[in-house]
Each structure stands twice: as C-alpha cells, then as structure tokens.
Design a protein around this nucleic acid. Structure first.
Lengths: 239, 239
DNA sequence: TTTATTTTTGAATGCTGTTCACTTTCCTGG
DNA sequence: CCAGGAAAGTGAACAGCATTCAAAAATAAA
C-alpha cells in the first residue's frame, strides 16, 4: 500500500508549501496586508485549493505559530539540558539570556497571533481554526512551562523549595520575557526607546536575579555598571 | 463670536459620540468584528460622516487608546503621590498592586492596539492615523515611565542609587505588568491556566520584591504560602 | 430671499476572505 | 487497456466591509 502513503506525503508537502509561502509573505508584508491570492500565487496553486488544506487564513497562521512554538520547545529543552546544574549567577544569567534569544526568535514573528489564539484576543476575527492545532499549541506551551519549572525546582541556584514556588519563579521569568518583548519589538513605525536589545535583555535578567527591593540587604550586591541611561527615555521616532 | 465656539463644541461632542459608540461596540464584539456601519448606527449618524472626524477605523481606536492612557497616567500619579515615602515591603507591594489594577483597567481593552501603535505591529493594517494622536500616545507613555522612575529613585524602599538604576527597576516592573497581563488576559476562547487574577498578581509582585535567585541568602526570607499550585498547569479549555 | 459654505447622506467602489459549480487528474476493478 | 468514480484542483462569483464621492440638506452670510 505505497500509494496511500505517497498521497499522504504529497498532501503534507503541499500543506508545507502553502505554509512556507505564507510565512515569507506574512513576514515581509504583514498578515493583514497579505491577500490569500498572493499566498496562492507564491505557492503556485489556486486560491480555492488553499481551503482544502486550511480552514481559514487565521488557520494558516495558527499552524505557523505551532511550528514556531514546537521549535522553541525543542531549543528550550536543549538549553536546559546544557545548563543542568548551573550554580553561579553568571551561569544562570547566561542560560536565561539564551532562553530569551530563542524565545524572541519564535515570539517575534508569531507572537501576535500566538497571543490571539492562546489567550484569546478581543480584537480577533471570529474564524474557524482547526481544533487540533489549538490543542497542540496549548499543549506545547504547557510543556515548555513544565520543563522550566522542573529545571528551577532542581537547580542548585534558585531557592525555590517546592514545585509551587518554582512555578511562581517560572511565571515571573515568563512574564518578564513577554514584557521585554513588548517593550522591545522594534520593527516598523517607530521606536519608543533608544537602547540596544541585547544589552537591554541582559540587564533585565541581571536585575531580576538581583531583585529590586529590600533596602535591608543593602551593600551586599556587586556593583553594576548600567548601560541603560535615563537619557534613553525620549522619542526616536519618525513621524 | 459665539457661533464659531458653539460649532467647535458641537464638533467635539460629535467626535466624542462616535468614540463612545465605538468603545461600547469594540468592547462587546471586538474591533475586527465591528463594522463601521454599526458604529455609525449606534452614534446615529451616517457612515460617511465618521470620516470627517477620523481618518480611519484604526484612527478611532488610537483615539480611544489615548484616552485610556491619559486616564492611567493620572491614576498613576495619584497612586504615587499617596504612596510617597512607602518604606515597608507591604506598603510597596500594595502600591504595586494598585498600579497593576489601574494598568489592567486600561491595558485590557486598549492594549492590543496600543501595542500596534506604539511598538509597531507587523500584522497591522497599513492605514492612516492622525500624527498628533500617535505623538500624544507616546508622550503620555513616556510621562508615566518617568513618574515611576522618579518615585523609585526617591523611594526609601528601593535600593536604586541613581536614576539609571531606577529606570532599570521601572522597566522590570513595566515588563512584568505587560507579561502578567498577557499570561492572564482571560476573556474569550479559553484559558490556559486555572488561577485567580488578583491572587496571581499579588504573588507575582511578592515574588519580584523578594527576588528569585541567590541561594547564598537562603533562609532570610519570610515563609510564603503560595496559592499557585502546580496542579494549575493544565487545560481548562472549551474546545 | 438669495447665495455661499458647511454638514450630512447613503449609494457606489474596490479589496479580499470564502464558497461553489465545474474541470482535470488519478486510482481501481474488471 | 478501459470505464467510472473519487479526489485534487480551478477560478469565477459572492459577500462583507473600509473607504470614497457626488449630491442633498442644513446652516450661515449677504
């Protein structure tokens, strides 16, 4: 029964062609500025055929987001394995920096709709998206969070004493990543701030590791040399 | 010259009517699911007239976002004034909780497009938005950040020694707020997590105040009783 | 009252996501 | 090799909606 398998393969291939065409165009011109006609042309098929492979334009994006999330999950796993047993602040900081980089690589292109799909998006158009895609998207997200939790729990660096405390730490880090990304997504109309992304992330990580409060423990922290200057708080825009 | 003034007033009033109609509908059905026809009907005018007051549908949303941001900025100012001199961790935690609440009130409805406008949004439709609206939106954002920075710098609680260190702290907090919001925006398709918003925010604040790292300083922190349980890490969905 | 200006209308326009009747291609059983 | 039926593929037609515009209505000025 090789025919059925070949057909299966071809179908997968075709779906992949569509996704790849869409990915390129979405990245170049933006999701809302890319008509499906263009996607069809790029994939060298007719418009109608797209709907034999995806339920809607949003469904295509959801599939792309899923691929991105799965890739991130794999990278995260590798990074955590590599850093297992990290003990010094420098080691942990490096790990977090790597995670941030990997996270941004996925979240940059797909984050917008990833949010829409997962957390629901008030402004989102009500359209059909394949249930399995959504389910897998959630599943892989939870998987990533769980990996992080386990790492934090077992790590000799973090002081979380049980899984629940570790989970809080994970949410803090996760939230910080999301927030940093927002503060920093910097391709397009104009930038609010004038600092470098890499430096910014590094300093945020350092800051969260050090903590922000506790005037009681004054003096025990190593001296930091911030590159973030108050002078950065100004327009660098192009209106 | 009362006529000109009256006309001015009426014009402002009309613009406000449109905004209010749009606000209601956007909130109820979502931005993308609300045709301008409906906005016009709600405001009891014709579709065409909307375009004498706003440059595009997105322009309406930008105006709404601006109003929200301005309101938040005012509330922030009041909260900071009230909490001036806060010294204990409990006081600071309460302040941050209040700020978070105020932030979410604004960011919930308008955040999506606020992001689009400020940080630029790859998926955004390329449309005309009044330049002054964008400028003011950025301006008020920077103003809020600056207020926070000044507070942190002068506060006896935070250990920031200069404005630059204070700014880092502010970005950390700001990023955390954005991140928490994302993790928690929970109206619609389904929720990833199963915990309560208020509790969650409180615990995140506590966590960031305590810090997450530093196994060296073990034991000096007060015992925490987390309500976030690992069991929460599962679907609570409605697919 | 007449004329000029501004406001307001809603039908027309154009773009685009989605559907559908139809054609082509491909597989299978005789 | 040949039907004939299923699956893949097509692109014109449809529908929804942001946006425009020519014309009408209302208002101000003369």
């Amino acid at each position: 029964m090789g025919i059925k398998e070949r057909k299966e393969r071809e179908k997968k291939q075709r779906a992949n062609d569509i996704l790849e065409a869409a990915r390129q165009l979405f990245e170049r011109k933006g999701f809302l500025n890319t008509p499906l006609q263009d996607v069809a042309k790029e994939a060298e098929i007719s418009v109608g055929l797209i709907y034999r492979y995806f339920q809607s334009k949003e469904d295509i994006f959801a599939s792309l987001a899923l691929k991105g999330a799965e890739q991130y999950d794999k990278q995260l796993e590798a990074l955590l394995k590599k850093a297992k047993g990290a003990k010094s602040r420098a080691q942990v900081a490096e790990l977090l920096g790597d995670i941030a980089e990997s996270f941004f690589a996925f979240y940059g292109p797909y984050g917008e709709y990833f949010d829409m799909l997962l957390y629901s998006y008030k402004g989102m158009k009500e359209v059909q998206i394949q249930a399995t895609t959504l389910t897998r998207l959630m599943s892989v997200t939870l998987s990533s969070l769980d990996k992080l939790k386990t790492f934090v729990h077992r790590s000799p660096y973090f002081k979380a004493r049980n899984e629940d405390e570790a989970l809080r730490t994970v949410f803090l880090l996760w939230g910080l990543l999301l927030g940093c990304h927002k503060l920093f997504d910097s391709s397009g109309r104009g930038h609010l701030f004038a600092f470098q992304k890499d430096t910014f992330i590094k300093e945020m990580i350092e800051q969260v590791l050090v903590g922000i409060g506790g005037s009681t423990s004054e003096g025990k922290e190593p001296v930091r040399k911030p590159s973030l200057s108050s002078r950065e708080l100004q327009f660098q825009d192009s209106l």
